[in-house]
Structures are given as structure tokens and as C-alpha cells.
Simulated assay, not measured.
Amino acid sequence: METVIEGLEHPWGLAFLPGGGMLVTERTGDLRLIRDGALAEEPVSGVPEVLALSQGGLLDIALPPDFETSSLVYLSFASGTAQSNNTALYRARYEDGALLDGGVIWTSQMNKTGGAHFGGRIAFMDDGTLLLTLGDGFEFREEAQNLENHFGTIVRLNPDGSPASGNPLAGEDGALSDIWTYGHRNVQGIAIDPATGIVWAHEHGPRGGDELNIIEGGNNYGWPIVTAGLDYSGARISPFTEHGQDYTAPLREWLPDSIAPSGLAVYRGEAFPNWNGDLLIGALAGQALHRVRVENGQAIAEEILLADEGARIRDVRVGPDGLVYVLTDHANGAVLRLSPAD
């Protein structure tokens, strides 16, 4: 493990630029450029104004598959005020350290209070559409079963922010046409395996009950009707801990303690050949990087890495070089790089 750069303020998401360099979001509201091992002195201009409150702020960043020709950048962020806020999606053109011609292309129908559970991870699918994860707003968990709003959902959008065609819930009475899946608590990790097309996601449980799921359009993942986690008071949230046929069961649950998962990558590369197809998951409360062994679409084993660093891991990505990059969630956060030992 080596430190690529330090001095980032609560970094949240990372994207690799063609030809080298990285763009890193800071939850407090800045987008930073790292090139040739150095942090650009000035933040990238043209970033939208964000609500930097508690868990809210500038969240994820993603480059579409056609970035080399389009130069488009997508940012998710918390928008609004402490009394009324949403998760929003911003699109702009990146050029020479600036975002140009930017605008908000999608805003969630949540209008929640407080600064918790925004979700915010972005993943592009092979068909050019994108998935955006959302949270249940913490105090609004019952709404995660209501298809008339975006609480506790994953949405599937066209590149311009409009609902993608073929969303399986669009025909249901009252359902928002951009919802892809629902019944989630707070999804802060999503990744698509480029080799299999499987969409993986994890979500925060309350006290225990973090989940690792395979995401399939139209499915209900159960929150808060069924959960293995406890409320913060120690009381049961629901009498149901088994998902049954109406709710998609997780492949992995973390019990009795939550690791608070954030960031997710499917490893495909040459640097760590024994890791191919495995999942890399950051842990905030667990202060570690978890490697989940995957075989035939099943999570069969788990290895805990970086536990001796004492760092909250916010994001994890596989670089173009096949090495693993992680963001530490601290006021003096860092980009760390993992490479094979000699």
C-alpha cells in the first residue's frame, strides 16, 4: 500500500481520466484534479452548489463509456436545504480543469428533512443507461416500499436524465417510471461486472444487517419489512428476518455489527489474477477493505485488508493499470494504491 495523495477533505468518489489523472469529489463541495502524482492547487470550476450537511454534499462522480468523445462528467450531490432536500444528478463537459455547460438533469422526488441517507452512487450499464442509487432518508424508511417516490430506490436513467425505456415498474399504478428496484435502505456501493454483466450493490443496515445484493430490475429488496438488523435503540425493526418469495434475499449480511459499507468494485485485471471476479468493498465503521470471494454468482468467502490502517474507507476503484485505489474518509483524506507485493 502506498499513498498517492493526501490533503483531501472527506473524499467521496473517484474517476480515472483517459491518459492518466484522476478526478476526486470532496463531500464538502469541491472537485479535485490529481495528475502526475500531484494535487492541482485550485479545485475544478463549474461544480454545482451542494448541501454539505451531515452525510450530504458532493457525492459520486462517473464518466460515461463515450467520455473520450463526449467529455461528459456526471456528479451526484445533495441539493436543497436542511428542511427540504433531495439527491440530484449533474452533467457537464470537462475541459482543462473546468466543468462547462453544466446543469442538473435529474432530481429525486423525496423532499426530505435532515442530512442522512442520500445514496448517490452512479454506474453505467452496457446499453448506455445509468443507475443511480438512493437512500431512504433515514426518518422516512416506510417510504422505501412506496413506488410513488424515490425513497430507498435505484433508478435507471437515459444519459440526459430522462427515464430509461424498459424499466419494469413503469406500468404499475402510481409508480415512477424511472425506478429500477426498491426496498433499499441506503445504497452507497454499486458496480457492474464487465465480464458477466451482473450488477452488484450493497447497502447500509441499521445496527447490523448490511447487505450485499445482486440487483435485478423490478425486484423488491425488502427494507424495512424484512431485515436482520436492529434499530439503534436495540429494538427489532421488523419481526421478519427471512426474505421469502416476495423479497430478494441478500447474498451476504454482516451481523451482528455493521461494517457500514461504502464504495464497491468488481476486480478485473492482471495485477491480482487470483482476485478476478471478486468484490472489493470499503468499510467506514469497520475501517477496512473487504475482499469478497465470488464463485458462480455466490459470495463464498471474505478477506479483510488494511484493518491495521485505522482508516474509514469511503470508495474503492480498480484503475486502468489493474491496481486498486481507495479513498479514506477523513478531514485529511487520502488516495491509497494497492499493488502486488514483490
Results as ranks from 00 to 15, higher is better:
Ser238Phe: 05
Leu264Arg: 01
Pro273Ile: 10
Asn296Pro: 06
Gln287Val: 01
Ala260Val: 10
Ile281Trp: 02
Ala307Met: 00
Tyr247Ile: 12
Leu323Pro: 07
Gly263Glu: 03
Leu284Pro: 01
Ala307Asp: 14
Arg317Thr: 04
His290Tyr: 10
Gly234Ala: 03
Ala235Glu: 15
Val318Ile: 11
Leu264Gln: 05
Glu309Cys: 08
Val292Pro: 07
Pro273His: 02
Ile237Pro: 10
Gln287Asn: 12
Val326Phe: 05
Leu279Met: 04
Asp278Glu: 11
Gly286Ser: 01
Val292Ile: 13
Ala235Val: 07
Glu309Trp: 13
Thr227His: 14
Asp246Gly: 14
Ile237His: 06
Asp257Ser: 14
Glu309Leu: 12
Asn276His: 04
Ile237Thr: 12
Ala249Glu: 15
Leu264Ser: 10
Glu309Met: 12
Glu270Ile: 00
Val266Met: 04
Val326Gly: 03
Arg291Thr: 03
Ala285His: 13
Asp246His: 15
Ile300Thr: 13
Ile304Asn: 08
Leu306Met: 13
Tyr232Met: 12
Leu264Ala: 09
Gly319Val: 00
Leu230Cys: 06
Glu242Asn: 08
Asn296Cys: 00
His243Trp: 15
Leu289Trp: 05
Pro273Val: 09
Thr241Phe: 06
Asp257Phe: 10
Pro250Ala: 03
Leu255Gly: 01
Pro261Cys: 02
Arg291Ile: 04
Arg252Ala: 15
Val324Lys: 10
Phe240Asn: 13
Leu264Met: 14
Thr241Asn: 05
Val266Gly: 07
Val318Arg: 01
Glu242His: 09
Leu323Asp: 11
Tyr325Cys: 00
His290Ala: 10
Ala301Ile: 05
Gly322Phe: 05
Ala301Leu: 05
Asn274His: 13
Trp254Asn: 03
Pro261His: 02
Glu303Asn: 11
Leu280Val: 11
Tyr267Glu: 01
Phe240Arg: 12
Asn276Leu: 04
Gln287Phe: 00
Asp246Cys: 11
His290Val: 11
His243Gly: 08
Leu284Cys: 03
Ala311Val: 10
Thr248Val: 15
Glu253Gly: 13
Trp254Tyr: 14
Gly269Leu: 04
Ala249Met: 12
Phe272Cys: 08
Thr241Asp: 08
Glu302Lys: 05
Gly244Trp: 07
Leu289Ala: 08
Leu284Arg: 00
Ala307Pro: 01
Arg314Lys: 05
Arg293Asp: 11
Gly269Ile: 06
Ala260Phe: 08
Glu295His: 11
Ala260Tyr: 01
Arg291Tyr: 06
Ile313Met: 15
Gly229Thr: 01
Leu264Cys: 12
Asp308Asn: 13
Trp275Thr: 02
Gly282Trp: 04
